[in-house]
C-alpha cells in the first residue's frame, strides 16, 4: 500500500531527522510533533529529509507550523506536492 509506505517513511524521517524521542509506536498519526519535542531546528532538518527522500521542494507558502505539525499533516502535504509534480 502506497499510503502505508508513505506513513512509515515519514515516521522513519521523524525519528532520524527530527530526532523526536517518542518511539514510533507511541506516536499517533494525529499527535502534535511539537508537543513531542520538535523544535524549529528539528523541523527544518525534517523538511530537508523529506525534500531529499521524495524529490520535492516545499514552497515558502507551505513552510508553516501546521504543515509539519503531525504525521497526518506531513502525509497530506507530501501528497499535494506529488500531485503537483504529476
Amino acid at each position: 500500500m502506497v499510503q502505508t509506505d508513505l506513513n512509515s517513511i515519514i515516521r522513519r524521517l521523524i525519528k532520524e531527522q527530527a530526532k523526536i524521542p517518542a518511539t514510533a509506536g507511541e506516536l499517533a498519526d494525529s499527535d502534535d510533533l511539537y508537543d513531542h519535542g520538535m523544535t524549529s531546528h528539528s523541523s527544518v532538518m525534517l523538511m530537508l529529509g523529506l525534500e531529499n527522500e521524495f524529490g520535492v521542494e516545499f514552497p515558502d507558502t507551505m513552510l508553516t507550523r501546521d504543515v509539519f505539525s503531525s504525521v497526518n499533516a506531513i502525509e497530506s502535504a507530501i501528497r499535494r506536492l506529488q500531485q503537483e509534480l504529476t
Partner: peptide, 13 residues
C-alpha cells in the same frame, strides 16, 4: 544561528 538553519529551507525574498 537560528536563522542560518531556517534559511536552509526558506528563500528570503
Amino acid at each position: 544561528s537560528t536563522n542560518a538553519t531556517l534559511l536552509l529551507v526558506y528563500r528570503d525574498s
